[in-house]
Amino acid sequence: YKIYPYDSLIVTNSISVKLPKDVDRTRLERHLSPEEFQEVFGMSIEEFDRLALWKRNDLKKKALLF
């Protein structure tokens, strides 16, 4: 996945969300650098992957990456 800054990946309720063209809309968190991922989620990507799907989705919603 290509890395993008968190600010360019957050999704708000506005209709005209302009995400970069090559971003996987269903896995926005994968486009964060490991350092920024840790900062946003408070855990590593590996720890995040071990969580239940509902928990990952809940965290993504709170981080505006859903």
Rank of each mutant, 00 (worst) to 15 (best):
Y1M: 10
Y1R: 08
K2I: 10
K2W: 05
I3A: 05
I3D: 03
I3H: 07
I3K: 07
Y4H: 05
P5H: 04
Y6I: 03
D7E: 15
D7Y: 13
S8C: 14
S8W: 14
S8I: 13
L9H: 01
I10N: 04
I10Q: 08
I10A: 06
I10C: 08
I10D: 02
I10M: 09
V11H: 08
V11E: 07
T12L: 14
N13T: 11
N13V: 09
N13E: 13
S14W: 05
I15K: 05
I15E: 15
I15R: 03
S16P: 11
S16I: 10
K18R: 11
L19V: 07
L19C: 06
L19K: 04
P20M: 03
P20Q: 04
P20D: 07
P20R: 03
K21R: 09
K21P: 15
D22L: 04
D22W: 05
D24M: 05
D24I: 07
R25K: 12
R25I: 15
T26Y: 14
T26E: 14
T26N: 15
T26L: 12
R27H: 15
R27E: 06
R27S: 09
L28I: 06
L28E: 01
E29I: 01
R30M: 07
R30S: 04
R30Y: 06
R30N: 05
H31S: 03
H31E: 01
L32S: 00
L32I: 07
S33R: 05
S33M: 04
S33L: 05
P34I: 13
P34Y: 10
P34S: 12
E35Y: 11
E36V: 08
E36D: 12
E36N: 07
F37A: 02
F37D: 00
Q38A: 12
V40P: 00
V40A: 05
G42K: 14
G42I: 05
G42V: 06
M43R: 04
S44Y: 08
I45T: 07
I45A: 08
E46Q: 11
E46S: 12
E46W: 10
E46H: 11
E47G: 06
E47D: 12
F48H: 01
F48K: 00
D49L: 07
D49R: 05
R50T: 13
R50L: 14
L51A: 04
L51I: 06
A52T: 13
L53P: 10
L53Q: 11
W54Y: 12
W54F: 09
K55I: 13
K55D: 11
R56E: 02
R56K: 10
R56W: 02
R56F: 01
N57T: 10
D58A: 12
D58S: 11
L59N: 02
L59A: 05
K60T: 02
K61P: 00
K61D: 06
K61I: 10
K61Y: 08
K62D: 09
A63K: 09
L64F: 12
L64C: 14
L64T: 04
L64A: 09
L65C: 02
L65I: 05
L65M: 05
L65A: 01
F66Y: 14
F66V: 08
F66Q: 07
F66C: 12
